[in-house]
Protein backbone atom coordinates (compact mmCIF):
# COMPACT_ATOMS: atom_id res chain seq x y z
CA UNK A 1 0.00 0.00 0.00
CA UNK A 2 1.21 3.45 -0.83
CA UNK A 3 1.31 6.36 1.61
CA UNK A 4 -1.64 7.89 -0.22
CA UNK A 5 -3.80 4.78 0.23
CA UNK A 6 -2.95 4.61 3.91
CA UNK A 7 -3.83 8.26 4.40
CA UNK A 8 -7.12 7.77 2.55
CA UNK A 9 -8.00 4.94 4.94
CA UNK A 10 -6.95 7.02 7.93
CA UNK A 11 -9.11 9.93 6.77
CA UNK A 12 -12.17 7.79 6.30
CA UNK A 13 -11.63 5.96 9.60
CA UNK A 14 -11.21 9.20 11.54
CA UNK A 15 -14.26 10.72 9.81
CA UNK A 16 -16.28 7.76 11.08
CA UNK A 17 -14.87 8.15 14.60
CA UNK A 18 -15.50 11.93 14.61
CA UNK A 19 -19.05 11.29 13.41
CA UNK A 20 -19.65 8.84 16.26
CA UNK A 21 -18.14 11.20 18.82
CA UNK A 22 -20.27 14.02 17.43
CA UNK A 23 -23.41 12.01 18.11
CA UNK A 24 -22.26 10.75 21.50
CA UNK A 25 -21.17 14.19 22.71
CA UNK A 26 -24.32 15.77 21.26
CA UNK A 27 -26.63 13.28 22.93
CA UNK A 28 -24.79 12.98 26.22
CA UNK A 29 -23.74 16.55 26.94
CA UNK A 30 -25.25 19.09 24.58
CA UNK A 31 -28.79 17.73 24.70
CA UNK A 32 -28.77 18.23 28.46
CA UNK A 33 -27.41 21.76 28.05
CA UNK A 34 -30.04 22.64 25.45
CA UNK A 35 -32.78 21.79 27.93
CA UNK A 36 -31.22 23.86 30.71
CA UNK A 37 -32.80 27.36 30.70
CA UNK A 38 -29.64 28.88 32.23
CA UNK A 39 -27.37 27.85 29.38
CA UNK A 40 -29.56 27.28 26.36
CA UNK A 41 -29.13 30.90 25.22
CA UNK A 42 -25.34 30.93 25.41
CA UNK A 43 -24.63 27.98 23.10
CA UNK A 44 -23.73 30.25 20.17
CA UNK A 45 -25.41 31.02 16.86
CA UNK A 46 -26.51 27.83 15.14
CA UNK A 47 -26.25 28.68 11.44
CA UNK A 48 -26.33 25.03 10.55
CA UNK A 49 -28.21 22.64 12.76
CA UNK A 50 -25.88 20.90 15.17
CA UNK A 51 -23.32 23.67 15.18
CA UNK A 52 -24.03 24.26 18.88
CA UNK A 53 -22.38 20.88 19.52
CA UNK A 54 -19.17 22.19 17.97
CA UNK A 55 -19.54 25.51 19.82
CA UNK A 56 -19.82 23.75 23.17
CA UNK A 57 -16.92 21.47 22.27
CA UNK A 58 -14.74 24.46 21.41
CA UNK A 59 -15.74 26.40 24.53
CA UNK A 60 -14.83 23.47 26.77
CA UNK A 61 -11.57 22.52 25.09
CA UNK A 62 -9.85 25.66 23.79
CA UNK A 63 -8.01 27.91 26.28
CA UNK A 64 -10.53 29.86 28.36
CA UNK A 65 -8.68 33.09 27.80
CA UNK A 66 -9.23 32.75 24.06
CA UNK A 67 -12.90 31.92 24.53
CA UNK A 68 -13.38 34.93 26.83
CA UNK A 69 -11.83 37.12 24.17
CA UNK A 70 -14.18 35.60 21.62
CA UNK A 71 -17.17 36.43 23.80
CA UNK A 72 -16.07 40.06 23.99
CA UNK A 73 -15.61 40.52 20.26
CA UNK A 74 -18.16 41.74 17.76
CA UNK A 75 -18.77 38.16 16.74
CA UNK A 76 -19.56 37.08 20.29
CA UNK A 77 -22.96 35.74 19.26
CA UNK A 78 -21.21 33.07 17.22
CA UNK A 79 -19.50 31.45 20.21
CA UNK A 80 -20.63 29.62 23.33
CA UNK A 81 -19.91 31.13 26.74
CA UNK A 82 -17.21 28.98 28.34
CA UNK A 83 -17.51 30.44 31.85
CA UNK A 84 -21.19 29.58 32.16
CA UNK A 85 -20.71 26.18 30.53
CA UNK A 86 -18.00 25.21 33.04
CA UNK A 87 -20.52 25.63 35.85
CA UNK A 88 -22.95 23.18 34.32
CA UNK A 89 -20.65 20.46 33.01
CA UNK A 90 -18.92 17.57 34.72
CA UNK A 91 -15.37 16.39 34.24
CA UNK A 92 -16.54 13.62 31.91
CA UNK A 93 -18.34 16.19 29.75
CA UNK A 94 -15.17 18.26 29.41
CA UNK A 95 -12.95 15.34 28.53
CA UNK A 96 -15.47 14.13 25.98
CA UNK A 97 -15.54 17.67 24.57
CA UNK A 98 -11.74 17.79 24.35
CA UNK A 99 -11.37 14.43 22.64
CA UNK A 100 -14.13 15.30 20.18
CA UNK A 101 -12.95 18.83 19.37
CA UNK A 102 -9.28 18.00 18.92
CA UNK A 103 -10.04 14.96 16.79
CA UNK A 104 -12.48 17.06 14.79
CA UNK A 105 -9.90 19.74 13.98
CA UNK A 106 -7.17 17.17 13.46
CA UNK A 107 -9.33 15.36 10.89
CA UNK A 108 -10.36 18.58 9.26
CA UNK A 109 -6.90 20.03 8.83
CA UNK A 110 -5.22 16.68 8.29
CA UNK A 111 -7.48 16.03 5.35
CA UNK A 112 -6.94 19.55 4.09
CA UNK A 113 -3.20 18.89 4.20
CA UNK A 114 -3.61 15.68 2.19
CA UNK A 115 -5.88 17.47 -0.28
CA UNK A 116 -3.24 20.16 -0.81
CA UNK A 117 -0.41 17.63 -1.17
CA UNK A 118 -2.49 15.62 -3.60
CA UNK A 119 -3.46 18.65 -5.66
CA UNK A 120 0.17 19.68 -6.02
CA UNK A 121 0.95 16.09 -7.07
CA UNK A 122 3.29 15.56 -4.13
CA UNK A 123 1.69 12.25 -3.18
Amino acid sequence: MTFFQISMMAIIASVVVVGLLFVVFGEYTVRRLRKNPEVKDVLGFEYVSGRDIINVGMALSLPRKLMRKARQSKLSFMFADADILYQYTSRVDRWLARIFTYLFFLTSFGTLFIVILHNFKLI
Binding site: I11, I12, V15, V18, V48, R51, I54, F104, F105, T107, S108, F109, T111, L112, V115
Partner: peptide, 8 residues
Amino acid sequence: TSAIIGEG
Protein backbone atom coordinates in the same frame (compact mmCIF):
# COMPACT_ATOMS: atom_id res chain seq x y z
CA THR B 1 -15.43 14.53 5.09
CA SER B 2 -16.44 17.64 3.22
CA ALA B 3 -18.84 18.61 6.00
CA ILE B 4 -16.16 18.20 8.66
CA ILE B 5 -13.52 20.04 6.63
CA GLY B 6 -15.81 22.92 5.74
CA GLU B 7 -16.97 23.37 9.31
CA GLY B 8 -13.47 23.05 10.75
